[in-house]
Computed example of a mutant assay.
Amino acid sequence: MVVNRILEWYRAGINPQDKLPFLATYLGHRDIHSTLVYITVTQDILQQANERFRAFGAHCLHVTEGVTP
């Protein structure tokens, strides 16, 4: 259930990190640490996270020619 919900959030463009406290409460957990135990990284979740990174964060890694990091 936890993995499916996270995957649905990714697909809907929702940041799962922001929603974990709500999911923990729904499941009756005291905090998100108890909920994190149930998160299994699947190929689908990795793909969704990768697509989100490319869309929003990959430009941060762009290195301009002639600039030494």
Rank of each mutant, 00 (worst) to 15 (best):
A49C: 01
Q17K: 13
D18Y: 06
Y26P: 00
H62E: 11
R52E: 12
D18G: 05
T42S: 13
L20Y: 08
V63E: 13
W9N: 02
T25R: 15
Q43G: 08
R5G: 02
E65L: 10
H62S: 10
T42C: 03
Y10I: 01
E51W: 06
V67N: 11
H62Q: 12
T35H: 12
I32N: 12
V3W: 06
Y10A: 02
F56A: 11
V3A: 13
Y26C: 06
M1R: 09
D44I: 04
E65R: 11
A12M: 09
T64Q: 14
V67R: 15
I14C: 03
A55M: 06
H59P: 00
Q43F: 07
T42D: 09
N4T: 15
D31G: 00
G28A: 03
V41I: 13
T25Y: 14
R30F: 03
A24M: 01
M1F: 08
L61P: 04
T40C: 10
S34P: 00
V63W: 12
Q17G: 12
R5S: 05
G66P: 01
D31I: 00
M1H: 06
Q43W: 06
Y10D: 01
A58W: 12
H62Y: 01
R5Q: 01
A12F: 05
L27G: 03
G66A: 05
G66T: 00
R54L: 10
G28D: 04
H29E: 07
L7Y: 08
R30P: 08
S34Q: 15
I32A: 08
L23A: 05
M1E: 08
V2R: 08
G28M: 04
A55T: 11
N4C: 10
E65A: 07
Y38W: 07
D18C: 00
D44S: 07
L27R: 07
T35S: 15
F53T: 08
K19F: 03
L61N: 11
G28K: 05
G66C: 05
L46A: 15
R30A: 10
F22V: 02
V2G: 08
P69C: 01
L46V: 06
F22I: 06
T42Q: 01
A58F: 14
Y26R: 13
W9R: 05
C60L: 15
D44Q: 10
H29W: 13
I14E: 13
A58Y: 12
T35D: 11
